[in-house]
Design a protein around this nucleic acid. Structure first.
Lengths: 190, 190
DNA sequence: TCGACAAGTCATCATATGATTACTTGCGCG
DNA sequence: CGCGCAAGTAATCATATGATGACTTGTCGA
């Protein structure tokens, strides 16, 4: 958690480091249990800087959520039918997130209260559902419920792995998850 | 939330009322955001009583978690294969929990930190997984991963419904859920 | 070189909240 | 009736934490 290079007065780098430390703590501990002091401490910087850059704790949260990676968000190609189960298995396996309590989805859930934050969270999951739907080759909204069940399964896996650490799910590899997940996708969105 | 009958100095009733108010708040808001003052206020009683009966906030949480109903816990008959999807659909539909943020499962998740609490939570989900397994007619542990995926789906549905309120899942009835859930169970535990 | 401005720190405040101890009051039993 | 005890209250403390405004210092351009 301590910084590696002393980071000589570089606002952009400091800002970035704060965002990362914040994301880690919000994800692991949730909003209330992470303190600004701890985040500042992680980065090796003074508490007051957070106010300078993000205005408030809520502001920091929003920034961290906006910067957080999303399911199949970034460089990832649009999924097709077979890639869907694949991507799910990869993102949710212990391979991808050995630190089982740092999965980005968890930040969406551990946090609440502010309406704008709720919006971010909601949008992320809506996007994910939409993505599932098109990956499965359904264009209309007639299978939206089923798509949301796939989303729910993804969320549930992340939660169960992290918050509860249930075996054998906690240590399942992408390969082990792939079969069952493909079966579920086929069953729900044939 | 205010009490209905004035409740004349009845320790048992007061204790019970505290447990219920606590469960509601812990479930909706999580551990940190619920305050002892608010719980005491709900019941119309002084803060110090909580200490008297439960020792501490943690103690109250443990008591509330132990008293909370479980998936297929109480009077419910052991499930068989067909009853499983049925029970899942019922417990997770908007029929059963129109107050979508009061589902008992959520208390398991919103809370963390203490080892003993983690144990309670873990045990509840383990029991649930075991129950799924036997309901599906699998005796050994060879399909434990699949059973846990069913558990994860249940958890995920509750989370998505409550924390995010995603449509159409949020308003799905037991009837609407039954088909897809039965399909998933069949796919995972044939 | 040096001075201005952004980057960063310090000290302090206000408040919410859990804990705790001493007190009061209603109820039932003899 | 009245007394003793459990049920309940009041007042107060300690502390953690977010917010803030005034201060210090490093860096970079002219």
């Amino acid at each position: 958690m301590a910084e590696t290079t002393p980071r000589r007065r570089d606002a952009a780098a400091t800002r970035q480091a704060l965002l990362e430390a914040a994301a880690r703590r919000f994800t692991r501990l949730g909003y209330e249990r992470t303190t600004l002091r701890d985040i500042a401490g992680d980065v090796g910087v003074n508490l007051a800087l957070i106010k300078r850059y993000f205005g408030s704790k809520e502001g920091l949260l929003k920034a961290a959520m906006s910067a957080s990676p999303r399911f199949g968000g970034d460089g990832e190609r649009p999924w097709d039918r077979t890639a869907l189960a694949d991507a799910l298995a990869r993102h949710l396996s212990s391979d991808a997130w050995p630190e089982f309590d740092e999965h980005p989805v968890l930040m969406l859930l551990r946090v609440s209260g502010d309406a704008q934050v709720d919006g971010l969270r909601r949008q992320a999951l809506l996007d994910f559902g939409r993505k599932v739907l098109t990956a499965a080759g359904h264009e209309g909204d007639d299978r939206l419920l089923e798509a949301e069940l796939v989303v729910a399964l993804g969320v549930g896996i992340a939660v169960v792995r992290s918050a509860v650490g249930l075996q054998p799910l906690r240590d399942a590899t992408a390969e082990q998850l792939h079969g069952p997940l493909a079966a579920v996708v086929d069953a729900l969105l044939p």
